[in-house]
């Protein structure tokens, strides 16, 4: 016999707190609704999730696997732990790896003070990076009229790739290569300023969590980023349908 109805509301526990959820809500959304902090970097409200930064991993009772909160949906009776010591240690290690991967020099970065990576390091208590730095050789691309791209500060979260593809529809950015050689590129790996597909909308700059993409001619103190346009655009588009 088929169940004659479909349950749409799930009840579950996050860090011991009982919460009710729609079946299409992720653990991350539920946590945010309930003021439970889960760190994220690749997640960006308004574009689809990729689960690649691994910061939002949570423990779910009954499975050994850690699950990304941004892509795990509420299930009836789930018991989620978001902040165990083990998770905190892993998160700090993820940040360690990110800091070591490229050339992040906060003191001379245009996003100093407005950088999500830097902020999270403080928040999660990273006083130093435990692994040796890799010091890759990467060229700054300042060919664009309005913006600059410094891959030394890129953490490969691909927010720019997704926002350019999904919201702007230009798909100027993508990732080339693989492994630690991955690099965000525009068009055929050409200077950004020469990329024909770029509409100069600047959405990528606004969503970049670090100083990898930035406005030209802006001082450090002015280098704040605006994200509220994303959910707004999404709502407006849905309303039009």
């Amino acid at each position: 016999m088929k169940r004659p109805f479909k349950t749409r509301i799930k009840t579950l526990k996050i860090d011991g707190i009982d919460v009710g959820a729609r079946e299409d809500e992720t653990i991350l959304e539920l946590a945010q609704e309930n003021d439970i902090f889960i760190p994220t970097l690749c997640h960006l409200e308004g574009v689809h999730d990729v689960g690649s930064c691994r910061l939002c991993l949570v423990e779910v009772r009954g499975t050994n696997k850690l699950l990304p909160a941004c892509m795990t949906y509420a299930e009836e009776g789930m018991e989620v732990i978001t902040n165990s010591e083990r998770l905190q240690a892993y998160r700090r290690q993820v940040l360690d790896l990110l800091f070591s991967e490229r050339n992040h020099v906060c003191s001379v970065c245009v996003s100093n003070g407005h950088c999500e990576l830097q902020w999270l390091a403080g928040k999660l208590g990273i006083s130093h990076v435990g692994v040796p730095y890799l010091y890759p050789q990467l060229e700054v691309d300042a060919s664009h009229r309005y913006y600059s791209y410094d891959p030394n500060r890129c953490i490969l979260c691909t927010r720019c790739v997704r926002v350019c593809d999904e919201i702007e529809g230009a798909h100027t950015w993508d990732v080339m290569g693989r492994g630690v050689e991955c690099l965000v590129i525009s068009d055929l790996n050409q200077p950004w300023g020469t990329a024909e597909s770029c509409t100069r909308c600047g959405k990528c700059v606004q969503v970049c969590p670090t100083g990898a993409l930035f406005n030209k001619g802006r001082a450090v103190a002015e280098m704040t980023k605006r994200r509220d346009f994303l959910p707004y655009l999404q709502t407006m588009r849905e309303g039009r349908k």
Binding site: C53, R54, Q93, L97, E101, L156, V180, C182
Partner: peptide, 8 residues
């Protein structure tokens, strides 16, 4: 190269 732990 997609996820941080494996990539780095």
């Amino acid at each position: 190269g997609r996820c941080v732990p494996c990539r780095v």
